[in-house]
């Protein structure tokens, strides 16, 4: 039988197909989030099954996670992103003790015990300031692609101070900085610092190494370096960081299948 993990996030839907017995990953897939997450999920799942010459009868168990987890009709159960990311990261980096996850609209700080179980966690509340959405707003405003942000911030010699905790106000602040002649490089570096500062403030004072950075924002160049500078510890970017939630969901599904 196969186990399926679905991570229906705010910006993308991610699916991992796993062999329940061997725990080997059979396929992974990603589609941009849209209006109907359930349909998008079903379509992506069928594509992945097709790639592997499998069909729905081969599925043993489906776990859905992510903000749209309750809308996924093929799911047998739902488990929160917190538990799924912890499980997924523990699978790929077994000695991880701290997980920083930054997604489209959420950011989380997880403290794992040596067995990989969640010991403690913190998560942003209403505000999306320390999340991927913040970076998107900035890249749109500066007219640069998300993939170019890392190169830009690397060129910064004097990162701007972005004091605002709110995306909307931060955008206003960026407009102010631009009109005052600040270099776009410095603004990008300032925004990246602001995001990691915001996320790190959730962790409190103690951050147990090794630290693993995951979620879609870990793919944005420059972010892991900004995080390293801020917390003064080396940070490992999880392999395939957008997938750790779905991977954790698949592993948890394989325990049921």
């Amino acid at each position: 039988m196969i186990a399926v993990g679905v991570d229906a996030g705010s910006r993308a839907i991610k699916i991992v197909l796993m062999d329940s017995d061997t725990r080997s990953i059979l396929a992974t897939g990603l589609v941009k989030q849209g209006v109907n997450s359930d349909e998008l999920t079903s379509h992506l799942l069928d594509c992945l099954l097709n790639e592997c010459a499998l069909n729905r009868d081969d599925i043993g168990y489906v776990v859905a996670t992510g903000y749209a987890r309750n809308r996924i009709s093929i799911a047998d159960t739902t488990i929160t992103e917190i538990t799924c990311h912890a499980c997924g990261v523990h699978h790929v980096v077994p000695d991880a003790r701290t997980v920083v996850e930054i997604g489209g609209q959420d950011s989380k700080f997880l403290h794992l015990d040596p067995t990989g179980a969640v010991h403690d966690f913190a998560m942003n509340d209403r505000c999306a300031a320390g999340t991927g959405r913040f970076l998107e707003v900035v890249s749109e405003r500066l007219g640069v692609g998300l993939e170019d942000l890392g190169q830009m911030s690397a060129r910064s010699s004097n990162p701007a101070v972005i004091s605002s905790m709110c995306i909307v106000f931060a955008e206003t602040e960026i407009i102010g900085l631009l009109s005052a002649g600040a270099a776009p490089e410095d603004i990008v570096a300032g925004v990246q610092n602001a995001i990691v500062t915001r996320v790190a403030s959730m962790a409190g004072r103690s951050i147990t190494p090794p630290v693993v950075f995951t979620g879609g924002v870990a793919l944005v160049p420059g972010m892991s370096q900004a995080l390293e500078r801020l917390i003064g510890q080396s940070v490992t970017v999880a392999p395939n960081p957008q997938m750790t939630g779905a991977l954790g969901a698949a592993i948890l599904a394989s325990k049921q299948a």
Partner: peptide, 24 residues
């Protein structure tokens, strides 16, 4: 923020249950 509160509450309960499961 109801959805976000629910995530945190559910995760709290998942954490509690998993610690029961492993007897820790």
């Amino acid at each position: 923020d109801s959805a976000r509160i629910a995530v945190r509450v559910e995760a709290l309960f998942e954490t509690l249950r998993s610690s029961y499961r492993t007897g820790q």
